[in-house]
């Protein structure tokens, strides 16, 4: 099975980020970066599929030079080779542009399966994978929690989707296909010393992002969310305060 896994490099979770001078993006020049969490699970799932069925895992990351960090990490965890679509503008770009960057790199090779994370921790689109599927002409399914070992018995892939409120659903589709993977689908492995050494000898192909499509939207400004509500203190003896609070939650906040 030839599997492509798309990984994004994002600012480390909890990094004390600040908005930059242009107020249109964050100051990430001095930030620490890591692999987007669901993408790490997608990679792990890809590696497990390869262990089960044989084949090859190719990671693909689109972004500035700094994304080499996550590519190296992915290779150290066991990916066989990598494609780096080099573009300085991708961190702020919309999901359509990012998907096109990935599609441009994946189109020339025929993969049996393309895996992406469900969504990214930075812009949080949750749609790059789905757009990519459409651009590549692949069937897709999202928020995948399990990939059945033996398919559906008709040579199709069978996967479990998460629905809202504790519901799930199995569905099957022909390959090649694209799946967006939910965090927690598996347990991540550690990079090993051996893996890190081996990663140095693996191929990283860099490709330019020659023709980015026009943006479908622009970020006009970024700001810190303002809390418009003031805390309303409910006073009085416990019984009275409790009754008043319940009333407010019911009638004012409509949270009950």
């Amino acid at each position: 099975m030839k599997i492509a896994v798309c990984i994004k490099q994002v600012v480390t979770r909890d990094w004390p980020l600040r908005i930059d001078e242009s107020a249109g993006w964050v100051r990430d020049g001095d930030a620490s970066f890591e692999m987007n969490e669901p993408d790490a699970y997608a990679l792990e799932e890809g590696l497990r599929l390869k262990e089960r069925h044989g084949g090859e895992v190719v990671v693909c990351s689109a972004g500035p030079a700094r994304v080499a960090q996550v590519i190296r990490e992915a290779l150290a965890r066991g990916a066989d080779r990598a494609i780096h679509v080099v573009s300085e503008d991708l961190p702020t770009a919309d999901a359509g542009v990012v998907a096109e960057a990935l599609a441009a790199a994946l189109r020339d090779e025929s993969f049996d399966l393309v895996l992406t994370g469900l969504q990214s921790d930075d812009q949080g689109f949750g749609e790059t994978g789905v757009i990519l599927a459409d651009r590549l002409g692949l069937p897709h399914a999202t928020i995948i929690m399990e990939i059945a070992a033996d398919g559906d018995g008709e040579g199709r892939i069978r996967v479990k989707r998460e629905l809202e409120g504790g519901w799930f659903q199995w569905l099957s589709m022909p390959t090649p296909a694209l799946l967006t993977i939910q965090s927690g689908i598996n347990q991540l492995r550690y990079a090993t010393l051996r893996g890190i050494m081996a990663a140095k000898r693996k191929e990283v192909r860099t490709v330019p992002f020659a023709s980015p499509p026009p943006s479908a939207w622009n970020i006009v400004a970024l700001r810190v969310p303002v809390k418009d509500k003031q805390t309303r203190f409910v006073d009085g003896p416990p019984e009275a305060a409790a009754a008043e609070l319940v009333r407010l939650l019911r009638d004012e906040a409509r949270a009950l």
Partner: peptide, 23 residues
């Protein structure tokens, strides 16, 4: 010897356990 990885709070091995390596 590098540290073991993948040990839980109680000292049990997690599924992801990677033993330390002697260098």
């Amino acid at each position: 010897r590098t540290g073991d990885r993948g040990i839980d709070r109680e000292g049990n091995r997690k599924a992801t356990f990677e033993p330390g390596v002697d260098i």
